[in-house]
Every structure is written in C-alpha cells, then in structure tokens.
C-alpha cells in the first residue's frame, strides 16, 4: 500500500483528534512520530494495524472511524477538487466513480484505490460495490460520498451495507442547497 493512504490516516488523526492522539497511536505501533512517507510503499498489514490502533486509542468502532476518515479526505481541498473533476452534478459524479480507480492510477501509478462499480436499483437509487485490498474501503467511501453530496448541494441518504462491501445511495433532492464552488482553473493549494 502506498504510504499516501497511511499518511492520510495519520493526518486525519492529527488534524481531527490532535497530535497527542497520533503520537500515542504511533508508539502503540512502534513508529517514529514523523510517521509515514506518502510516496513510499508499506505493507498492507501495517494499514490494518494502524486502523486498529486508532480505534483502540479513540475507543471508537471501526465503521465510525472509517466513515469520518472518508469525510475528512473528501473535504481536503486538493482531494475535493480532484473528486469534482468527476462530473458537473452529483449524478454525473456517481456515474463516473467507476473511472476513479483508473483516474487515480493515471495520476499516480502506485496508488491502488479500490475498484468501484455502480448499479441503479430505481429512480435516484444506487448501489456502489467497492472491491479493494483493504476491508473497510466501502465505509470510507460512504464518508466520501456524504461529503461530496454536501459539496454538490444534494440531499441524499448514504449508508454502508452490513457486508462492508457496498454503499447504498438514495438521492432525495438534487437541488437541496447551493453547490460549493468549483472552477477548473483554480490551482490546488496545500498538499494531499
């Protein structure tokens, strides 16, 4: 797994729960406080133990933590912008999610995001299958999809399924609120 994923979890812990929480998690794992290098490769098992250690440290369920992680990721401005390239409205965004894996690979060949496939089960009802090398990705995507629904200004019910392999989406109102601004030309600021 590319360190970028682990580093994102590290940043999530630091930014939302404080540097001290991260330091505790790092020492549980026997890692230096500097943590993960985004552009280096790490063992997949390390990502799992990182999530486990964070859940233990915070006394939270894995589902809660991963959903929050998804929301955190999608609200980072550089990531939000890249996701917004997915479409001019939320439906369009959902329909191009299947390209996300390859899009990410196009930018960063080592970044192995899960494979996504979307099916429609009725008007405004979707099911997103998430197949990746890390169980829990579907939960992360539930968080991402919720944050992006806010971003596009739509009202939607988004739930990860019990199996942990898919997310259901019910679009209730496509014009619920003003969508957040997205101009093609604004250069991304900050880092991933």
């Amino acid at each position: 797994m590319l360190g970028l994923i682990n580093r994102s979890i590290q940043n999530f812990l630091t930014d939302t729960h404080g540097a001290e929480v991260w330091h505790h998690v790092a020492s549980r794992l026997g890692l230096p406080p500097a943590g993960f290098e985004p552009m280096l490769q790490y063992d997949d098992a390390q990502t799992l133990s990182l999530i486990e250690a964070a859940c233990t440290e915070l006394g939270r369920s894995c589902t809660d933590l991963l959903e929050d992680l998804g929301t955190y990721l999608a609200t980072r401005e550089p990531v939000r912008r890249l996701l917004r390239y997915g479409g001019c409205d939320y439906t369009d965004f959902l329909n191009t999610l299947e390209d996300l894996h390859d899009r990410a690979r196009m930018a960063l060949a080592d970044l192995d995001l899960p494979e996504l496939s979307l099916s429609t089960s009725g008007a405004g009802e979707y099911r997103l299958m998430v197949v990746g090398n890390l169980s829990g990705w579907a939960t992360v995507f539930a968080g991402i999809l919720r944050a992006m629904a806010d971003d596009y200004g739509v009202l939607a019910l988004i739930e990860p399924e019990e199996t942990g392999e898919s997310v259901t989406i019910r679009l209730l109102d496509s014009y619920h609120a003003q969508a957040r601004n997205f101009a093609l030309s604004r250069a991304a600021e900050g880092s991933l």
């Binding site: 001019c88 196009m106 930018a107 880092s191």
Partner: peptide, 30 residues
C-alpha cells in the same frame, strides 16, 4: 473561466486539467 460544459465530451481537456492538477500535487509530495 471555461467550465466542463464548454468542452465536448470526447475532448480530453478535462482529463488533461485533472492530470495537471493531480501531477502537481504528486510533484509537491515528491
């Protein structure tokens, strides 16, 4: 101030802009 709708769907303009942005982030990390 062009937007996505100003480009033909077959045009690779969006992919190019996306790549440019993603690449500059990756370059920043590197």
């Amino acid at each position: 101030g062009l937007t996505e709708r100003d480009f033909a769907a077959a045009d690779l303009a969006m992919e190019m802009l996306y790549l440019q942005e993603a690449k500059s982030l990756v370059m920043g990390e590197l």
